[in-house]
Write a protein that binds this DNA or RNA. Structure first.
Length: 461
RNA sequence: GCGUCGGUGGUGGAGUGGUCAAUCACAAGAGACUGUAAAUCUCUCGCCUCCGGGCUUCGAAGGUUCGAAUCCUUCCCGGCGCACCA
């Protein structure tokens, strides 16, 4: 079944999209031309990336899948790594001031990031690029020369800490020059920043809901936080200069305000304003809050197939359709079918969820693994078999079981262990499938498979 | 700079000299019921324990007291208000 370009675009602009800003449809038109191969000009999609958390979860993946679809239509995705802005602290987050992240660390983070991303996105230079915003926000004096940096300037050594030394480093580390081979690198000076700030009013910035809320609750609102959206807007401006375009910015709904500020900054600078697409937020495994690492309700795309499957199975029924929409490639027809099935009282939603889990695991680990893990899941939880590949702990002669488990971090403390035993949560499993409840918390560790609660398994050897 | 209010467990937030390992809610864990769903019910939720109890905690350090999370001193951190400056 081959969809026409128009059909694909329709899907692209509606599926999981919370809002799309593109007055007079300039972006849509350009995209259509690009997809049909009528123009050679690049279509640049900006996506802001947080450099501090390289562990991607399904919530991130929703946007990444969307980006992939744009790539498939010939667009170039540019990851904007907000290392500079992160060091300032995005007010979107929990308002904790974030630590400065070293450039080297960023590069390392990006490596792991890209490795994960490549499960979803194409990373060839034709359709992908990345750049960090310290590239234009840092000045020469922000450079921190490393020890042992050997600079030679026409036969004369240069002190790395001197301005000249820093300038050298600056030239060497700028991605615009080093990686993108730009003749002229753009940078944002204090003067330039104020030029922009002089064209944005206080009212424009504080209209943001979150700022209002903070003020109403009597919390503090710092200037740098108010400026954050502007900086993010300047990123769009910079991108336009570097990539000769910045046609669309994509992000979660929580980024809408910031992304719209990009339009403002571009307008101020007489650039064509970027379109803005905000994507629905995926809820976490408990079905209420947004999926995030700090709430520990996330499914990492690096999760082992078994964990991933289990976590999907643990979501409430009410969000099954939501997950289907945002995490799989199921088309409209199938989504409709699933919606009908979910309403059918004769069908156990669990079975639909089993399919969902398998489908999601297949995206990240392949169809074979997904099927295998589905069977293993059924075996473990329906037939109560001992799962494979569980953690093994070696026991020392005569060691108390409690000590062993605390040592291996299977339980958090001896008190914790005692409680679990008293609650009848600990069982030793026998080959035949029978279980023996552990009643003595001072028991000496003997080899075997132990089950703590419903899902913790430990093998002692 | 001045004034003022505050800093308590994973989170929010009580407690203002002994009955406080600290009400309560949320989060979390376990059991029952189940579909490793939700909802519901019960229990647990600092550490150690020979189950009698012991030990360490309330921003940090000192002090008062028989006794302090609670009072005093100093320091650190934060909110708010005022002033200075502009």
């Amino acid at each position: 079944m081959i969809m026409t370009v128009e059909e694909r675009m329709e899907n692209l602009f509606t599926r999981g999209v919370a809002s799309f800003v593109d007055p007079s449809s300039k972006f849509k038109e350009k995209l259509l031309k690009k997809a049909k191969g009528e123009i050679s000009e690049e279509v640049i999609i900006k996506f802001g990336v947080d450099p501090t958390r390289p562990d991607l979860h399904l919530g991130h993946a929703v946007v990444l899948h969307k980006l992939r679809k744009f790539q498939d239509l010939g667009c170039k995705v540019v990851f904007l790594v907000g290392d500079f802005t992160a060091s300032i602290g995005d007010p979107t987050g929990k308002s904790k001031v974030r630590p400065m992240v070293e450039q080297k660390e960023i590069e390392e983070n990006m490596e792991t990031y890209l490795r994960q991303v490549s499960k979803i996105l194409l990373t060839t230079s034709q359709v992908f690029s990345w750049i960090r915003n310290s590239d234009w926000f840092y000045g020469v004096s922000d450079m921190l020369p490393k020890e042992g940096l050997n600079l030679d300037f026409w036969g004369r050594g240069i002190n790395p800490s001197s301005f000249l030394g820093k300038a050298f480093l600056y030239e060497k580390t700028r991605m615009q020059v080093r990686d993108l081979k730009k003749q002229e690198a753009i940078g944002v000076t204090l003067r330039g920043l104020f030029w922009t700030l002089g064209r944005i009013t206080h009212a424009q910035l504080i209209e943001r809901d979150m700022f209002q809320n903070r003020l109403n609750e009597g919390n503090s609102l710092f200037i740098h936080e108010m400026l954050y959206p502007v900086l993010q807007g300047i990123d769009s401006f910079a991108l336009y200069n570097i990539y000769n375009g910045c046609d669309l910015e994509i992000g979660g709904t929580d980024q809408t305000f910031n992304m719209l500020m990009g339009r403002e900054v571009m307008k101020i600078n007489k650039q064509p304003e970027q379109a803005v697409m905000s994507i629905d937020i995926l809820v976490g495994t408990e079905g209420k809050e947004k999926m995030s690492k700090s709430l520990d309700n996330y499914i990492s795309i690096n999760d082992e197939p078994r964990d991933m499957f289990g976590k999907v199975m643990s979501i409430p029924d009410t969000v099954i359709l939501n997950y289907y929409q945002l995490c799989t490639s199921a088309d409209k027809e199938r989504l409709k079918g699933i919606e009908v099935k979910l309403k059918d009282p004769k069908i156990n939603p669990r079975d639909i969820k089993l399919d969902l889990a398998e489908e999601i695991v297949a995206i990240y680990h392949g169809a074979d693994n997904a099927l295998g893990v589905r069977e293993a899941f059924l075996a473990t939880f329906q037939k109560k078999e001992i799962p494979e590949g569980i953690e093994e702990i070696r026991t020392n002669e005569g060691e108390i079981l409690a000590d062993l488990l605390v040592r291996s971090k299977a339980v958090s403390s001896k008190s914790d262990w005692r409680r679990l035993v008293e609650e009848g949560a600990v069982k030793r499993l026998r080959e035949a499938g029978s279980e023996e409840k552990i009643v003595n918390y001072l028991e000496v560790a003997t080899p075997g498979v132990y089950k703590i609660g419903k899902r913790r398994f430990v093998k002692i050897i």
